[in-house]
Simulated assay, not measured.
Amino acid sequence: MGKQANSCQYIFSDVQQPDLPMIHGKDLSCVFEGNITVTAVDHVHFGIEEGQITAIIGESGSGKSTLLKLIYGLLEPTSGEVRYRGWLVPTRKDKLIPGHDAMKLVSQGFDDLNLYAKVWDNVASQLSNTNLALKASKTQETLERLRIDHLAKKRVADLSGGEKQRVAICRALINDPEVLLMDEPFNQVDAAFRDELQQDIQQIVAETGLTLVMVSHDPAEVLAMANKLIVMKNGKIADAGDPHALYNWPHHPYTARLLAKSNILQPNEAKILGIETEHPIAIQQEHIQTELNLNGNYWIKDVRFRGFFNELIIGNEEVTLHQIQFPRLDVKKNTRIDILVTTYHVFEPKSI
């Protein structure tokens, strides 16, 4: 990936700050003024390392898409700053056409695609005509990399959502950006083809050293792909770190619910299960075992079919838990049971 121009082209007073992550946010906020003032991003700090896949995850309205646009320079921060390789990221007030030169953004709505042009033309149009042979070979190579060379002569309007997504990614990658930003990249991709596209993107990152920052609301996507997670809640960063660590040892109950659909219990609820703790705990659904007992203190409140497993709603009048039952067994509502919790995670007071 070729080195891109620094922000001194646009922000003449800027001085490069050394020893920062590739993308660095400091005290970053974005407030939208209107009939109602909305703080979309609220004084966040973060670092994104080069050559990795970083996923920003959170519920709808958590601020994740706004953060992505701040990173790209589409939005002007209300306070704080974003730096790329130590230089300030230029925004609309600094550039006629916003967006950092080293980055490309693939949005949810395929806004940049010409729906009535062919796939080939959509991708090739991103290259100049100074070397037509190179333009043709680079276009062909990029289409093959995303496995859509067979669609080259089709109109974009005639493609499925997943195929359009691949065209959009081709357009973004053909000029070899250093950073690819993707907003909900798999929303319109059929489940059957989602894994294949995820694997292709991971391979591109591994082969080229591309830095990928993606926004998602789906834990399954980010746990499968990301090297690092940034978890957002109400405009703030609730958690950040390695996906495996955050799944098993989250710092915030919100993270536990979001990534693992964990049961969050207060100390008085945990005591009902025989767990003595002074702080809230998280119990993952897969860490609960049940045994049939006609005289048990708990019962099965509901059985929900989830495909290859059942989700059991269990407990008593004082506590309710969700449990993954795998392999699936034929159990009935109101069946009396005993509950055994094999593992749980205790939250530190500062996390709540």
Rank of each mutant, 00 (worst) to 15 (best):
286 E>I: 12
254 Y>Q: 10
95 K>M: 15
190 D>H: 10
279 H>V: 02
322 H>T: 12
132 L>I: 15
88 L>N: 10
328 R>I: 11
80 G>Y: 05
244 H>K: 14
66 T>I: 12
70 L>G: 06
133 A>V: 13
262 S>R: 03
289 Q>H: 12
148 I>Y: 01
52 Q>Y: 09
52 Q>V: 01
131 N>D: 15
223 L>P: 01
203 Q>S: 14
130 T>W: 11
138 K>D: 08
348 E>M: 04
64 K>F: 07
157 A>V: 01
145 R>D: 04
294 L>F: 06
159 L>Y: 02
31 V>A: 06
258 L>K: 06
212 L>S: 06
332 K>Q: 13
66 T>M: 10
167 V>D: 02
1 M>Y: 08
222 V>F: 03
262 S>V: 05
106 V>N: 05
214 M>K: 07
171 R>Y: 02
329 L>H: 13
278 E>F: 00
19 D>M: 06
121 D>W: 02
226 A>G: 08
171 R>K: 11
52 Q>T: 14
6 N>M: 06
228 K>P: 00
210 L>Q: 02
168 A>E: 03
184 E>A: 03
166 R>K: 14
194 R>I: 06
166 R>M: 10
13 S>H: 12
205 V>G: 01
197 L>Y: 04
306 R>P: 00
278 E>S: 13
87 W>C: 04
42 D>P: 03
232 M>S: 10
264 I>V: 11
128 S>N: 13
91 T>W: 02
145 R>T: 13
130 T>C: 04
133 A>K: 14
94 D>N: 15
108 Q>C: 07
93 K>G: 04
196 E>A: 13
187 N>R: 11
281 I>S: 00
214 M>A: 09
29 S>I: 08
49 E>F: 09
119 V>C: 09
235 G>R: 02
176 D>H: 12
157 A>F: 07
